[in-house]
């Protein structure tokens, strides 16, 4: 599934320049706890979160996450958007709540990735 398809499924607004929308995503995770993302996230996932502070982007950068979806219609400050663009991370904002947004992506075939062995 591409980021462009995720955007369509979640009826999401694109907050970044959209240069990487054709990147293919194989798994996703949803969390408001960045420590858990750092512990358990898989290879190149989408991160769905309700947090809009810069550490969300920093966490995504460390984990090679290519797309962050802000749920509940949240929109971050311009500085965060610039940081994400600099890191090559696409930002989406959907009005769906976390549970629904995750469910929609899951039902369209975007599953959780394999559990890492470390």
């Amino acid at each position: 599934m591409t980021i462009r398809e995720i955007r369509k499924i979640l009826a999401a607004a694109l907050l970044t320049d959209g240069k990487h929308q054709n990147v293919t995503i194989h798994s996703a995770c949803g969390s408001d706890m960045m420590s858990d993302v750092l512990a358990f996230a898989k290879n190149q996932p989408v991160l769905l979160t309700g947090l809009i502070n810069p550490q969300v982007v920093r966490t995504a950068e460390m984990m090679d996450i290519r797309c962050i979806v802000f749920v509940r219609g949240k929109k971050p400050e311009a500085d965060l958007v610039r940081l994400a663009q600099a890191c090559g991370i696409e930002l989406l904002s959907t009005s769906f709540r976390m549970y629904t947004a995750c469910g929609l992506l899951y039902s369209h075939g975007l599953l959780e990735g394999p559990v890492p062995n470390e």
Partner: peptide, 16 residues
């Protein structure tokens, strides 16, 4: 509230 403080910091460092 920033998404940290779950008590995973040092365990994560050890893990990686």
């Amino acid at each position: 509230e920033l998404g940290f403080g779950a008590g995973m910091g040092l365990p994560n460092m050890k893990k990686y």
